[in-house]
Design a protein around this nucleic acid. Structure first.
Lengths: 345, 345
DNA sequence: TTGAAAGCGCTACCAT
DNA sequence: ATGGTAGCGCTTTCAA
């Protein structure tokens, strides 16, 4: 089967007009549902011509004149983990339902992010969503963007001095509710394990741990906070877990600052011969997709990625419709998802 | 802090030219690195003007004249699972490294897919990658696309009569190598559990199971193939697993047609008091990101999503550079990833 | 009810 | 070494 010759020029609105025996304007009107004052017959002729010629309007030409691209940019600054990618499963459908399309960028570094922003700006996207980790120190470059950039919504990154719509996560509150729950289940000695990350979210969870203990009048032991540094590997968390198990008194519950660490803790505890949750409760953080498949299924504090996506797209669409509205900042709860790895002591 | 007034018109190449005291042509030349025959001073003046005016060239205007958008479309037809999304982590960086950007679409149905294709065509993308499940029966509409569509690469969907570049997965071979391995470990009674899906890939794995048994002269028991229908839930797989455990002879190994099913099997087997892999080996399929976090870590046959992404973008770029090259079809192996859930009997 | 023509912001060709 | 200008494929007045 030979390839169809492709030296046929692209078909344009002009060709359609000619074929239908009408003017370009009329075709344009038909294309844009301005058909009130149009003969049924004219319309039909145009539709036929479009069909026959296999015509597809060029949105690049349209964009040039309308000054809109019907495109939204999304920059996700974490990719190693499927966690943030979940947002795509709600953002993309929402974007498309609103008759927009989505340019997707990842940002593995600040430099990468800035390059992505430039790209989106040159593409003249109508709006941008940032879904970020909080490792970057320098957000100032976003300041320069403000005058000329399209509407922006920022998820999970605090930019205090700028007027961006923002969505925050109540990381601290999530950890506190985990502690509330554990105390309710009779736990008194609750340890906290930090993962390898040095992000704000991690700090906030640690802060929540302290506040939670304090709230219930529980002693805070330094030795119950195991901190992994940036180089921490699974083997290190194993060692840390073992150290925790050897402590006196032995913690009856371990909070991990993310689900990956929790998985390692869970495995290590099981291999040490302890039962979960009979002997010890494990609670993760993030509600990663896999946390439901562990045995026992992991109790965890959810990072509201999906809900963030849902809200972000709504906020962005709103702002695109009304750029003068007041800047919005919302904080989403991090709900505790109780599954099987935790229980009464 | 009040918002900067945005009634200032967009700055264009004309403004830059004026500010720099040169012609638009010269600015355009500077923008496109045609600087050989250009005074250092002129170039500097232009760069200064760009800086001062905060000018960003419009890629929509550029696209209109060059007839290229520097954009690639990606349509992924499975989203419930983080599996396919992994491809993004290799495709997006590769796309951007080649100075393209990525429009990302999901397709939850054939209708959805066609809508996405239309969108991409109107956006005049320079190429399209399909990453598909194989549930769709009707691919014929892609035929009509061929004459006018940009280069296309298709992953994991067989379209025999068309001239698309395609990447296949050797699902059957993957299952066979799992059986090879199990036989080598002394297993003689190997069961197969199908998941809830009715896709070609699932069929191929089942076919591989039969071929593998045959290859080693092992008996094939119908009762060792547990088939879940579309309505199958975790509870059903549990029941099926229990049935398998009650069979005589009891299988010493269970192949699951995907990792989610494998997780349920694993859990059920453990709760039935059997040790993995001492009493029974479990092997999944897909190598989902979470499979490494189960306890024991899951041995699994990898669906080469990442490698597919890598190859797809290379193939696409190649075809975009040379549309007359022969159509390529490659088949990627599905390597067995040996972890902890399998071993000698 | 329909059409003519200007113009969106660039690039590319041809001059100078 | 630099500039003038046509034209990419549409939408949008304004006119008929």
């Amino acid at each position: 089967m030979s390839k169809p010759s492709s030296n046929s020029k692209r078909v344009t609105i002009k060709d359609v007009a000619q074929a239908a025996g009408v003017s370009v304007t009329t075709v344009s009107n038909a294309l844009n549902q301005r058909t009130e004052a149009m003969t049924q017959e004219t319309l039909q002729r145009i539709q036929d011509a479009i069909q026959v010629l296999n015509y597809r309007p060029s949105s690049v030409a349209r964009s040039l004149v309308t000054n809109q691209t019907a495109t939204i940019g999304l920059i996700i600054s974490e990719i190693e983990t499927p966690l943030f990618l979940q947002a795509l499963s709600v953002i993309e459908p929402a974007v498309r339902a609103a008759d927009y399309s989505l340019i997707y960028c990842t940002a593995r570094s600040l430099d990468d992010e800035q390059q992505a922003v430039n790209l989106l700006l040159e593409k003249r996207v109508d709006g941008i969503i940032f879904l970020s980790t909080s490792v970057y120190l320098d957000d100032d470059y976003l300041l320069d963007l403000l005058p000329t950039a399209p509407p922006i919504v920022i998820i999970n990154r605090t930019i205090s001095h700028l007027e961006f719509d923002q969505i925050h996560w109540d990381n601290s509150g999530g950890t506190i509710s985990a502690i509330d729950y554990l105390v309710e289940q009779g736990h008194q000695c609750i340890a906290f394990m930090r993962g390898p990350d040095t992000r704000r979210s991690s700090e906030e969870r640690l802060a929540g741990y302290r506040l939670g203990l304090q709230k219930h009048g529980l002693a805070y032991w330094d030795e119950c906070v195991v901190t992994g540094d940036y180089e921490t590997t699974a083997a290190d968390w194993e060692r840390a877990t073992l150290a925790l198990l050897a402590a006196t008194p032995r913690p009856t519950a371990i909070l991990a600052s993310n689900d990956i660490v929790a998985s390692v803790v869970l495995r290590t505890v099981q291999r040490a011969g302890l039962r979960i949750p009979a002997d010890i409760s494990i609670i993760g953080n993030d509600n990663q997709p896999f946390s439901i498949y562990s045995n026992p299924a992991l109790t965890t504090v959810e990072a509201p990625v999906i809900e963030s996506g849902r809200q972000a797209i709504t906020m962005l669409l709103n702002r695109m419709a009304n750029s003068n509205a007041d800047v919005k900042r919302i904080t989403l709860p991090c709900p505790l998802i109780i599954r099987e790895s935790s229980g009464t002591i």
